[in-house]
Nucleic acid binder design. Structure first.
Lengths: 226, 226
DNA sequence: ACACTAAAACTTGTATACTAGTCAACGAAA
DNA sequence: TTTCGTTGACTAGTATACAAGTTTTAGTGT
């Protein structure tokens, strides 16, 4: 997640944003945790103002819940918000796939294939963290291949809502293999220009999250709202 | 454009945001216009801080260009940004249409039909402004019908980029008729559960902007960047 | 011990002051 | 006349102080 696209200089606010974003997504800050502008400011050695801006941006991503005169909290998981985020992500990524299958940038083919190989290695070494990073990169490369790089910003923003939840799901070797196979099928359809198969594969791929979310809803109900 | 969804109370920042948003979209503030936090603050009778927050939010919508130690300007039109926004909007609205054609909320059918009738009236009385409002409402109702109300936030955010540009295009009676016909075909396909036709119609509908943008690019080149 | 009240200790929103950096205008030198 | 450099009036980013409101806690009366 880039701090601010339009600027080269990174401000104090950017720093705070990046740190908090990482902590929230990695569940170092658990859903429901109270978090105070003043305290964060002290811990960073900044004033409240830059922290406040970072808070606002995180609230826009639905990662914080800021209410006037009340303690700001790390937003609990919300099945509604997760569903909404997935809807948007699916919509955008489907359109990306469509664009890529009719007119893709061939110079991205090699990075995509390389990424696939590394996914395979991550699976054999059962390195879930590496696999996650490669998955992130894979979907970014898809956007590049479709020459719609900016679209990944939307996808990433909506992934965040789910990513932190997935930290609670233990990633089995089988699960990774399934995802890897999805990627494989997707790429094949893409390279063949078969938009319909690519779409169907992507939709199935993204739908795999549903049972995971449901499972975590029962095992970690305390982290959910309502 | 709602000020802030999560809060009931409207803050000074919300007020400034709403006012500036309206002025920018209505081209009362032209692309390229310098705009100062201090001056805006004085004109509203607020301090700089709420204005600053409003600026940040407008910058996130790509309506302002904020750079450190430089004058903030109303963002010039950018064909790249417009294309990006349209990509996202198309993606989301296509998925909305798909959702609506397989499982729509029938209680929205009546409002949709009523909206269509009023579109017809606006055309016969050649009231372009009313037609524009009804068009906005129409697409919002589509989201409601698909039970994905939140999706309209994304659509609206990306519409903004184009809406202010369309203020420069004189809306002829014929153009309005064409759009109205699109809406008609879209609804018919939707009510018939014909997702494919609905998709095709929507895509054609949104593509109609292309020649308009190109025309304005030549007639009002000064408002564009690069 | 329990219920209710009041005050103190938090919270975010806003106002103001200061800092560092950019830009434009003006003047001097070539 | 043209070009370069300096100066001063801007800009946004940050720090700090205050205001308004919520929550918790302590204390008092029963």
């Amino acid at each position: 997640m880039a701090a601010q696209a339009t600027l080269d200089r990174t401000t104090s606010s950017d720093h705070v944003f990046d740190e908090l974003y990482a902590k929230i997504v990695r569940l170092e800050l658990l859903p429901g945790t109270k978090i105070s502008e003043t305290e964060v400011a002290k811990s960073f050695g900044y004033s409240r103002q830059p922290v406040r801006e970072a808070f606002t941006r995180l609230a826009n991503l639905n990662l914080l819940l800021v209410r006037p005169q009340r303690a700001t909290v790390v937003r609990p998981f919300s099945r509604q918000l997760i569903a909404n985020a997935r809807f948007i992500r699916t919509a955008v990524e489907l359109e990306v796939i469509r664009a890529a299958s009719t007119d893709r940038d061939p110079s991205i083919d090699a990075p995509l294939k390389s990424n696939m190989r590394r996914q395979g290695k991550a699976i054999t070494s059962e390195d879930a963290s590496a696999f996650h990073d490669l998955d992130y990169e894979f979907h970014r490369l898809l956007c590049e291949s479709a020459q719609q790089t900016f679209a990944f910003e939307i996808i990433a923003a909506n992934k965040a809502q789910v990513d932190r939840l997935c930290m609670l799901a233990l990633t089995s070797k089988e699960a990774m293999k399934t995802l890897h196979l999805d990627h494989q099928k997707l790429l094949e359809a893409l390279f063949a220009g078969d938009a319909q198969t690519a779409e169907k594969t992507l939709r199935a791929h993204l739908d795999r999250l549903t049972p995971t979310v449901d499972a975590i809803y029962t095992t970690h109900n305390a982290y959910f709202d309502g």
